[in-house]
């Protein structure tokens, strides 16, 4: 067996995760998180918060809860099953900020906690904002 054949052999025999089961779990948990978000939105609107503010509060509430769940050690237990179901909603972003922050406490609050917060959030913000700048420039010229 040469290198190429060996790689093909190991690729082939390596069991993949059960995609169907994973997808069902991701669908149910991801959908549920969004529905819970909708619940908060309805609640905030019900108590008379303005629509834009209510939407912002909805995100902030989910970020708060995901961070709390990360801190008490529940988030990764749910994520083990949910996969993309907890990753893709804003909860995944919150977990990606909170988990390295908690983890890096042993390296101090400046170079540990604060710098590690950006490990995954940094790239998300950088590429998100750069994409929005490009869109903004295009939009500017279309508007003209």
């Amino acid at each position: 067996m040469n290198k190429k054949e060996y790689l093909a052999y190991t690729e082939k025999r390596a069991k993949r995760s059960n995609t169907v089961v994973n997808c069902i779990k991701a669908f149910l948990i991801g959908g549920l998180i969004c529905a819970i978000g909708q619940g908060f939105l309805v609640l905030y609107l019900y108590i008379g918060v303005a629509e834009e503010t209510a939407k912002t509060l909805e995100s902030v509430t989910l970020i708060f809860l995901a961070g709390l769940f990360t801190g008490i050690g529940w988030f990764d237990k749910i994520a083990k099953h949910a996969g993309a179901g907890t990753l893709v909603p804003i909860t995944g972003f919150s977990n990606a900020v909170t988990s390295p922050a908690i983890d890096a406490k042993s390296e101090g609050f400046v170079m540990g906690v604060a710098s590690q917060m950006f490990v995954i959030a940094g790239p998300v913000i950088v590429y998100g904002t750069v994409a929005s700048i490009i869109y903004g420039i295009i939009y500017f010229f279309i508007m003209k």
Binding site: V60, G67, T70, V97, T98, M117, A121
Partner: peptide, 13 residues
């Protein structure tokens, strides 16, 4: 959202 993420993360840590 971004500010809340970082502020809360500091609190949780």
């Amino acid at each position: 959202g971004i500010t809340a993420s970082f502020a809360f993360a500091l609190l949780w840590s």
